[in-house]
Design a binder for these strands. Sequence first.
DNA 1: CGATTTATTGCAACCAAGTTGCATATACGG
DNA 2: CCGTATATGCAACTTGGTTGCAATAAATCG
Lengths: 152, 152
Amino acid sequence: MIAAVKGRHPTPAQSKVAALRSRLRASGLRATPARLAVLSFLESASRPVSHADLVEALADSGIDRVTLYRNLTDLTQVGLVRRADLGDHVWRFESAQSKSGHAEHPHFTCVECGEIACLSEASVRIAQGKGIPRSATRALEIQIRGLCDRCS
Amino acid sequence: MIAAVKGRHPTPAQSKVAALRSRLRASGLRATPARLAVLSFLESASRPVSHADLVEALADSGIDRVTLYRNLTDLTQVGLVRRADLGDHVWRFESAQSKSGHAEHPHFTCVECGEIACLSEASVRIAQGKGIPRSATRALEIQIRGLCDRCS
DNA sequence: CGATTTATTGCAACCAAGTTGCATATACGG
DNA sequence: CCGTATATGCAACTTGGTTGCAATAAATCG
Ligand SMILES: [Mn+2]
Ligand SMILES: [Mn+2]
Ligand SMILES: [Zn+2]
Ligand SMILES: [Zn+2]
């Protein structure tokens, strides 16, 4: 273990952190503990995460809530993270890493229980036509609200 | 009605107010000046209206901002109005009158200039399939963000 | 018409989410 | 290691929205 720390074979955890670190650096951001924690949490989340979620998850890390806000907006600005309001007035963030199936995709929110699901890119088709901005067919964000299977 | 009692024909403006009044009453709400003003403004708007829009539009009416908040939520609760967050963290309201083409419909927001457009009901198709809640095809609200024709 | 009942309003206080200013700390290139 | 630009913590502030309560005014009924 100590040998590994000293630079022999990196553990999986170490190389994951190193990867995050270099993605941050490549985006022009410094790799601070707070940013590593935020990005790594977002990376492991299976659905978009709110600032409140993050505050709770990193409660005992001693990171200030303002730092979390700033980290989230910084990460969003450089494109490492995407921000969306899924229709319930709460900003949610998700990793924008295009590998690991995290390309831009539509989201579904249950108006009853609040459950959020990531849909596949292909699941929504927008028709061309009068009154529809041509560019809507190249929509950046699509979000759907309704009743989930459990609630309907 | 009063005009009839007085033996005159109601002006268009009078009958419009009378209609609003009776729609409010039919929904179990009292027809107050504030509600008539709000509903009538929403009715004449061509796109969803925020609380701030309303405060501005009715600035000199002397109606308190809290009353406007309460009116909007009351009207939404009884179904005369629909509320949506079009992805920018602002609640917007539109008349739910199903005649005059105001059925539930998708909305498009330009991420650049903020312009909002109401799309036709048929313009968005949601595919059936794995990972897609069956009920998503009966979505209640659909909202699309992207660049409008002018901004793209 | 009043008088009575009850929903609605105004106002002030409050709250939560998010932002900003600034002094201090720290990442990182040299 | 140092110097410097970037990032953080903390407090103050802003914005959008809610709540409690006393005063007001719709509706209902005789
Ligand atoms: Mn997603
Ligand atoms: Mn509309
Ligand atoms: Zn549900
Ligand atoms: Zn635009």
